[in-house]
Amino acid sequence: MKPPPFDYYAPDTLDEALALMAQHGYGAKALAGGQSLVPTMNFRLAAPSVLVDLNRIPDLSYIRLAPDGGLLIGAMTRHVQAEKNPKVADKHPLLHATMPNIGHPQIRNRGTLGGSIAHADPAAELPALMRAVQGRIKAQSARGSRWIPADDFFQGFFTTALAEDELITELHLPPLPAGSGWAIEEVARRHGDFALVGAFAILHLDGAGRCDHVRISLFGVGDGPMLATTAMGVLRGEKLDDEAIATAAEAAAQKDVDPPSDVHATASFRRHLVNVLVQRTLTQALARAAGQEVTA
């Protein structure tokens, strides 16, 4: 299990990195934390001819407050930095709650947020989180930069909207609507494993107690992070109680997903888990929206 040969560049500036990506095109891969890319190379399931190592570019690791009250996070920010950052805990409790679910301590010390998003593992937490919060991904190339909404970014199995010469440089996580409730739940075989199924829920109630904002984002159930749009439709404009939540969860399981079978779980078990987790996350989110303390 030794990686195939490649040429290696470790640019000191983003401009150099972008020039290298432009120059090497399809055969080039950006090396961020390497926690997914390197195992894939060690198994010889990936053989990039050029690696552009982003780890020496100084300005890609930061967590800042965005003008809208959300967060701007540099692509090379390591998981551990987001996990332990007080700004994240304070301004984005959902991101804060998500981080410990990702891999193990050693993985989080090295893995980056931008790398996770670019890798787009359908069973990973961060891509689904980005969809849940309606985040945006800043893609940069020698040609310029653009913001891609998370809803457009993930395009299929390990496939994204990034062009060959583009790098992710920044993530924008808008703030959750004031007074909204949120939750993340996942079922994994072992602690730290990729999820069999995972779910994020965010909801907000209007003055009359009706749901005026809801996002349910699922992972592990398709070829990428997916929204439970039917379930969201069921809830929008409704008063939320156990029955409404059960109806939404059932809709998510039956209409919104067509999950895969693999050695860890059958499609039918995953469908069942979608139902369970959508119920659990909505129930928790509703409690939080009502100002209750929730221990997941």
């Binding site: 198994f43 072992r190 730290g192 990729f194 050695v263």
Partner: peptide
């Protein structure tokens, strides 16, 4: 063989 890695063959950790 569908389980030829520690990602698919699940050896218990300290949490299990």
């Amino acid at each position: 063989l569908l389980t030829a890695s520690f990602m698919d063959y699940l050896v218990p950790t300290s949490m299990e």
